[in-house]
Design a binder for these strands. Structure first.
Lengths: 224, 224
DNA sequence: GCATATTTGTCCGTATGTATA
DNA sequence: CTATACATACGGACAAATATG
């Protein structure tokens, strides 16, 4: 019984629980999270919840206003652009410098297969998850623990922005084939080509997200 | 009185205080930090200290063992290699893609001048700080808030490893001229050359650190 | 191998300051 | 402007895990 993930700290377990709720879009961006209410509904103490809040704030999933508590982060267009800037830098470099026999290659392959299956079954959340897994596998090519965790946080934050846009098919479907093509280039050893392809891909994806986001802001602006 | 950095949370202020003590090498790596003792000596409650601990653990400066509390991180050779792997990826890319008139250029120039002055006065801690500032400026060329904060954490962790090696002249002096040369290349618009130069630089630096670290481990091994 | 002391993990009650209706 | 609600921070309490003799 030496599982470290099993009976971690209560605060850590709560952190994970909140994180998954956040990236699943269970709460509206901007929504305030009351310490008292949440701690009661989770049946934990306020102190424990505060520890979890602090971590998630550092990860960018929550925002903290002094003396006003925490609320769900509402990704701005600037933050989306920032996230994509980092993604391009890290992912393209990882792909360009990788050696084709790297173990992460099988993870890329699995992700592509999962995405194809998901598309066939029109299970768009599954396609989205497979897409995330594909990009994590790309970063894993760089063999860096720190890069992996940083990238995980980055994707979580981006997922918060995705949560704002309620059209998973539109957002994820186009990239299934691009991932497959990317994997083919990579397995063929055409690293530079693959990396450039990934770069264009990410520029394109960023543009789509930003456009959808701007549209949503406009709608909200009309309403408000 | 609307300074946000002035009267932040107590926990945040404590976090900063602990962080600067950690990178200054005030505590031995591996040393246990008792909640009760530290909270008393800092005149804060245990709960507040625990929040600070949690953040610093996430930054890699402290390590947490369940039911055994936190202790100062003792960077391993593997973590040093990991840090340098990330540094090469981020810094070289930032330099290669930067446009020469970027505002961060002046920060690079200031850092070089500070380092030159520090070397003249044989103020090695100052040289070390200037060196850190130079590399932060390089990363700032990429114009990414997230990259900047990630890199700051990375350098803090590396500084913990430097703290283990008590020979600042040996560690920092050789890089003053390399930084100056790098800046010259950058200002001349020779981006590829500058980036390659930086890459070799970082490989060299990593080797020096690892060698010094291994030497120190050997000494300790004999002693223990 | 056992009993004891120490330390962490977690919770609660409460006082104080800040924001908002 | 007052009152209320809430976040912030503290200290005490106790169980559980760990270290020590």
């Amino acid at each position: 019984m030496s599982r470290t993930t099993d009976t971690q700290n209560l605060a850590d377990r709560v952190t994970e629980e909140l994180r998954s709720k956040l990236i699943a879009g269970d709460w509206e961006p901007g929504q305030r999270l009351s310490e008292a209410a949440l701690s009661e509904s989770l049946a934990i103490s306020r102190n424990t919840l505060r520890e979890a809040f602090r971590l998630l704030t550092k990860e960018g999933l929550l925002v903290h206003e002094p003396n006003k508590g925490v609320s769900v982060a509402a990704p701005s267009m600037a933050s989306i652009m920032d996230i994509y800037r980092v993604r391009r830098m890290i992912e393209c470099q990882a792909l360009a410098q990788a050696y084709p026999m790297h173990p992460a290659r099988s993870a890329m392959r699995t992700a592509v297969e999962d995405a194809l299956r998901g598309r066939e079954e029109r299970d768009w959340p599954a396609v989205g998850s497979a897409n995330m897994a594909f990009h994590k596998a790309v970063v894993a090519l760089a063999d860096s623990e720190r890069l992996d965790t940083m990238f995980t946080h980055l994707l979580a934050e981006l997922r918060l922005a995705f949560g704002l846009l309620r059209d998973p098919e539109f957002l994820h479907a186009p990239y299934v084939d691009m991932n497959a093509k990317l994997l083919a280039l990579f397995e063929a050893g055409k690293l530079t080509e693959a990396s450039n392809s990934l770069h264009d891909y990410l520029v394109h994806s960023e543009r789509i997200i930003l456009a959808a986001y701007a549209r949503r802001l406009a709608e909200q602006g009309v309403r408000a």
